[in-house]
Amino acid sequence: MSDTIIYAMYDDDDKLVDGAKMLVSKGIHVNEVFSPMPIHGIDDVIGVRHTRLGIAAFLYGLTGLMLATLGMKYFMIDDWMMNIGGKPSFSYLENLPAFIPITFEFTVLCAAHGMAITYFLRNGTLPGMPATNPDPRTTDDRFVMEIRTSENSKYSASDIQALVRSTDFVELDEKTV
């Protein structure tokens, strides 16, 4: 199955957002936007699904919380009983305040690292991963919109090109895969 990808390049994020709005109003689905910086409000315009990174972060945090609790229970209470601030009651619950800072820190550590690694993996931007953006200039000062004919069965490639031409673009490129 052949798929034609149309890349429309813009030199300003506002022009891209305006163009995307126009295309979306015609019923065209914009697959992806490549940009050197986050474009405010673009998610809603091209209909990107709400990120699930928050759910992932919660799960990583929960993991950290449990690991810290189990770890400290084992280290400080079970394996080698510690005298905590002159309170050698050898009970996790009774010494709970002493454990809270570490629980908190470890929760944050796991949530933050888990989130960052997930983000990089999901975006394919871990160090060493091949770049997937269509044009190196999208890391500098250009903004590219990607439209696939496979996702727009109502329109042919030339129809989409004609519509893109009516926006304030700077370059137009087409690729068949």
Binding site: G85, G86, K87, P97, A98, I100, P101
Partner: peptide, 12 residues
Amino acid sequence: FFSQFMLIWYAD
């Protein structure tokens, strides 16, 4: 609140 409480609880 917790910072104040924990240090005082700890030092006793």
